[in-house]
Design a protein around this nucleic acid. Structure first.
Lengths: 202, 202, 202, 202
DNA sequence: TATGAATGAGTGTTCATTCAT
DNA sequence: AATGAATGAACACTCATTCAT
């Protein structure tokens, strides 16, 4: 009696996951608004109605993708950042990781970067905690660096975290949309780190 | 005989402009997909059908906003950049200008930054020349700076222009979406320039 | 002062005629419902609004075509039927004429045969006098023929006129729609007359 | 487990049929172009969207009516024609049957005769096979009759089948549109057969 | 749980008609 | 008389969501 329940729970989790993954693929391919719930259902190989057993509505599906992916990103980031204690190395690691993740999960990245922003409703109303949590990894590193004297103290971490995220994310976005890749992610990471650390002036 | 024609032309241009402006306001407020053509018509104080006398369809309206705004941005940027010949000053001017423009035309900025990116179709299919033209102002400045020895030569202008644009645009985006402004655009411009020019390392 | 008026009247009549002819061409090509008033205006080389100076509405345009064409058909039929006094010859003449007219005015024929029938409203509500007048040419001939003993007296002219018209009109319709003509109208006229006069039995 | 599926299939077929019948009634009453899909839905007592579960679009509904009715006609005709082997009797049977069918399914007949012809697109583009199949029943009978010497050999079956169909169909059409019936279908059948077999000449 | 047929509100778009010029 | 810009009602079609099975 316990086992079947467990089995069901697992099956249930599997189906939830299956739908999430289907939604990521579908939304990345066609855009959130141009995709139908039926498209997602077909991709996930479930009935339309089944989606509503796992998600409140279509918007909830998008939000769930976001939370799922931010959890994934945060988890991977925290794991990766343990290896080093030097703020500079940590920041390099973070930038490199973000770009790697975009490369590893291109559909996911596209949904996050493009489709999510589309929903003004989402951007304005949804308490975007997970994203701030992700961003705060950056401001944490900056704060540590400023304390230990590695980074300049006159730079405002609130602004800086956005500047760094924006720079890295724009590169990631371009890379996602580019058909013929003109540079590797490793090259891009080097360039971005170079610029952020030392600036562009001679 | 010539005058009425002129008047008509002007009136016609006025109505075109009126619809564009209405669309910017509506799309910024609700998002492109959540706005109806009827909403735009109401805002522009014209009949629904009138929209279709000036624009092919709803998508065309979005694209027109984009072209209109990029023209505006490019024009303002070129005017502003004439004042100085120092690449560093020019870049500072450009960054400052972009942020000022976003502040001056917040609805327009929001449509460009958010609504436009939503349309995967748009991002993937529309030959995004005007945007590249805008971006190329940055790579032009970088190129000049590298030639004259002001900027480091080992940085790839193709990547760099994106990094700079991403950093600036993310700040602009956050500022647009922030309800209670926690910093001024001038402060932000200083911080961004500081980081870009000299880097974040001590 | 008299002349310009006359000239205007003539010009006015010309424009009326021009619109009728444009409407015939457009409706024949695309069907009444798939054609727009603007299409007709363009074809007639007048402004959209001008159509409404000469016709009450789009339906009126169709009815006017019908009346115009039936007048034309009746006029040509009456002229042609004067030449002979033999009912059999007259009927042969009528059949031949109808087919010739369809061949001569294919667009007109198509509008009458197809587009007119579409409008149930028209078929049911419009007092279809002109068409009955045309049909009555046939019953007149039959009546004469029965009186003079050329045609069988036990046939009901009311039914018969329809049978004959239906037979002829179906041939005309097929001929109008056929792309590669497989028989000439003269052949068809011969066959139809042969059948109607002598029947199909050996 | 099998039964519910069967029930569903049957129910599904029922709904398809229900919509077809509603469409026939609505199109016959108002004409295809003057009827809305919502009208059909209301008549069929289903939601607007349901129509699109069974038919591709409004045109498809019209075409489906056509195919449905031609199948019905062909089936009834083939059944009726088995009883006799005499070409003359067979032709009489066919004519009588066509008129009876029009009387039995007046709405259907009207849609076929009138509404279908309206759509130039349909008449020109739709590969009208079913209708030709129906017409070919007539040419088959004629061919047999000519072979067996019952019908004149100099008459072209291609033209003749149209002449006969046109004659019969015009009678049917008039009868459908006539409000006060001035003759019975049986009378009409007799008259038509008399004329077709023996001609109108004394 | 899972299904998928059914729903019906919602919307982009067309076009007959009007009317100020 | 003639224009054609403007109107706004109308409609085909879509799709998120529900619910009986």
């Amino acid at each position: 009696m316990g086992l079947p329940l467990l089995a069901n729970k697992k099956q249930s989790a599997d189906k939830h996951q299956k739908i999430i993954e289907a939604a990521i693929a579908v939304f990345a391919g066609n855009g959130f608004f141009n995709s139908t719930v039926a498209d997602v259902a077909r991709e996930a190989d479930v009935a339309d109605g089944t989606i509503y057993l796992y998600f409140k509505n279509k918007d909830d599906l998008l939000i769930s993708i976001f939370e799922y992916s931010m959890d994934l990103f945060i988890q991977e980031a925290e794991a990766a950042l343990k290896s080093s204690s030097d703020p500079k190395e940590k920041l390099r690691e973070f930038i490199s990781l973000h770009l790697k993740l975009v490369q590893k999960y291109p559909d996911l990245a596209q949904v996050i970067q493009i489709e999510l922003r589309q929903s003004t409703k989402f951007m304005k109303e949804y308490p975007n905690e997970k994203f701030f949590q992700y961003l705060d990894i950056v401001s944490g590193i900056i704060g540590d660096g400023q304390e230990s004297g590695v980074f300049k103290k006159n730079l405002d971490p609130v602004i800086l975290k956005r500047v760094i995220f924006g720079a890295v994310d724009e590169i990631a976005l371009e890379w996602t949309l580019m058909k013929r890749k003109r540079y590797t992610m490793a090259e891009a990471a080097d360039q971005v780190c170079g610029m952020i650390f030392e600036g562009i002036c001679q």
